[in-house]
Nucleic acid binder design. Structure first.
Length: 128
DNA sequence: GCTATGACAAGGA
DNA sequence: CTCCTTGCCATAG
C-alpha cells in the first residue's frame, strides 16, 4: 500500500476526534502539518474515509456546516450520525462548531511528528 | 512535469 | 444572511 504520508496522517488525525466532537477540514490540515490543504482533507475522506474505522462524519467545514455532496455519504446521513452522538444539527445543516470542537492535547499532537514551533501555531489557532 | 479537479477557507459584494 | 472570487495544494491522468 504505497499511500502517501499525507493520507496516512489525515486518517490518523481524523481517528483522534472523540465521540461527540467535531473538527474542521482546515483544522485537520493544520494537524497534519499542511495548513492550507483543507480541501485535500475532504478529498481523502471522500476516497478513503468510508473504511468503517474512520469517523469522517466528525469533520465539517469551519463555518460549522456540513459540506459533503457525495451521493454515497449524504448530508442527511452525516447529520444523523452526528445527532446519534449528541451533536445538535439544525435543519439547514448548521452546527455550533466551537461548542463541539475537538481540542487535542499538545501531547497528542506530538504523535503526528510536528515540531514544537508548529505545535504552538496549532495551539494558538484552535486551543485558545 | 503540467493541467484539471475539488467533502475548503476567508474576505468582499 | 447568501453568492462569488481568489488562494491553496495533494492527487489523478
Amino acid at each position: 500500500m504505497g499511500e502517501s504520508k499525507f493520507k496516512q496522517k489525515v486518517i490518523k488525525a481524523v481517528r483522534m476526534i472523540p465521540y461527540g466532537q467535531v473538527a474542521s477540514y482546515g483544522q485537520i490540515a493544520l494537524m497534519v502539518g499542511i495548513p492550507r490543504a483543507a480541501i485535500q482533507v475532504g478529498w481523502i475522506l471522500h476516497i478513503a474515509g468510508d473504511d468503517g474505522k474512520t469517523p469522517w462524519w466528525r469533520v465539517i467545514n469551519n463555518a460549522g456546516r456540513i459540506s459533503t455532496k457525495c451521493p454515497e455519504h449524504t448530508p442527511l446521513l452525516q447529520k444523523e450520525l452526528l445527532e446519534e452522538e449528541g451533536v445538535e444539527v439544525t435543519g439547514k445543516l448548521n452546527i455550533d462548531i466551537e461548542k463541539y470542537r475537538f481540542r487535542p492535547a499538545p501531547d497528542a499532537l506530538k504523535d503526528l511528528n510536528l515540531d514544537e514551533r508548529y505545535i504552538e501555531q496549532v495551539i494558538a489557532k484552535y486551543l485558545i
